Amino acid sequence: MTRAPGHTRGASAMTTVSPLYRTMREALDRLDDTVPGKFEITKEGIVHDMMAPGGPHELTVLRVRKRLEKVMPEELAAHTGEPDVADDTQGVMRHPDVMVIAEADMEVEFSFDPRTLLAAIEVVSRSNPDNDWVGKLRDYPLLGVPVYAIFDPRTGSGAVFSDIHATPEGPRYATRKDFFYGEDVTIAEWTISTDGLPRYP
């Protein structure tokens, strides 16, 4: 997908965007269709998950999306496609597996504004679990995403994080609610079943 390097929502000048971040965005634009895997940008640099998601990962994404859309208002979407979410002034670009967002907030030309997301949902990658449990747990509150849910097919469990608050290390989630597959889980305002979600072999 084509992005606008240095494009910053709400910024009055390009000087608010780090030159390093702008360079990384431009590099990823060139790599988009030529290098396999998923790329994201964190405060620590580029994260590259080289392995394509397998069946259990993608089936979890599909079932979570479908279950959420059954209980959410029609004007909301559990979106699983492009584009990414980015805050150029923070120098962070992420691509959640599922984004709960109003359709009206999807009418943008470039990256979604992360502060328009009602929730971000990740299914833990077998090849890089720390990206979901550590990196994104740090980045999503920094981006202002109010709820972050993790489904982990390795363990058949997960957690929902909410209530962003300030800490000396930056914004963090204050509340964590763990769940096991087979239980109902509440993400933001909506409760879905986790029955039948697949596990990694």
Results as ranks from 00 to 15, higher is better:
Ile46Gly: 05
Asp32Arg: 12
His57Pro: 07
Val160Asn: 00
Lys66Phe: 11
Glu58Tyr: 05
Arg199Ile: 14
Ala86Asp: 00
Leu117Thr: 06
Thr15Cys: 10
Asp195Gln: 13
Met99Lys: 00
Leu68Val: 07
Asp87Val: 08
Arg30Ser: 11
Ile121Gln: 02
Arg199Asn: 10
Lys136Met: 08
Glu189Met: 12
Ala13Cys: 13
Lys43Trp: 07
Ala166Ser: 13
His48Gln: 14
Glu169Tyr: 09
Lys177Tyr: 09
Glu189Leu: 14
Glu109Gly: 15
Val123Gln: 02
Gly144Trp: 04
Trp190Ser: 03
Thr191Gln: 05
Met50Arg: 10
Leu20Pro: 06
Gly81Ser: 08
Trp133Ile: 10
Ile187Asn: 05
Thr80Ala: 08
Ala119Ser: 14
Ile41Asp: 02
Val98Trp: 02
Arg22Lys: 11
Pro201His: 12
Val35Asp: 03
Asp87Pro: 07
Thr167Cys: 07
Leu28Lys: 04
Met99Pro: 04
Val123Tyr: 02
Gln90Ser: 11
Thr191Gly: 05
Arg199Met: 14
Ile150Lys: 04
Leu197Asp: 05
Gln90Val: 08
Trp190Phe: 12
Lys177Gln: 15
Glu26Ser: 14
Glu109Ser: 12
Leu68Asp: 03
Tyr148Thr: 03
Ile164Val: 11
Tyr140Asn: 01
Asp113Trp: 01
Arg115Gln: 15
Tyr173Cys: 04
Val134Met: 08
Lys177Pro: 08
Asp84His: 10
Ala78His: 00
Phe112Leu: 07
Arg138Ala: 02
Gly45Ile: 12
Asp130Trp: 02
Ser18Pro: 00
Phe161Cys: 09
Pro53Leu: 02
Asp88Trp: 07
Leu62Glu: 13
Val185Phe: 03
Asp152Leu: 01
His7Glu: 15
Gly54Arg: 05
Leu68Phe: 02
Leu197Val: 09
Pro146Glu: 06
Thr16Ser: 14
Asp49Ser: 15
Asp49Gln: 15
Ala120Met: 07
Glu189Thr: 11
Pro96Glu: 07
Asp49His: 08
Leu142Trp: 01
Glu69Arg: 00
His7Cys: 09
Met50Asn: 09
Met93Arg: 06
Thr175Lys: 12
Pro96Thr: 12
Ile192Glu: 00
Ala119Cys: 11
Arg67Tyr: 05
Glu169Met: 10
Arg176Ser: 13
Ile101Asp: 00
Leu62Met: 15
Asp178Thr: 15
Leu117Ile: 13
Arg126Phe: 05
Phe110Asp: 11
Arg126Thr: 08
Leu76Val: 04
Asp84Ser: 15
Met51Gln: 14
His95Val: 12
Lys66Met: 12
Pro171His: 06
His95Thr: 13
Gly158Ala: 06
Leu117Met: 12
Val17Ser: 00
Arg3Ser: 10
Phe161Ala: 07
Val145Leu: 08
Thr16Trp: 09
Glu58Gly: 13
Glu183Ala: 12
Ala188Asp: 15
Val35Gly: 05
Val134Thr: 14
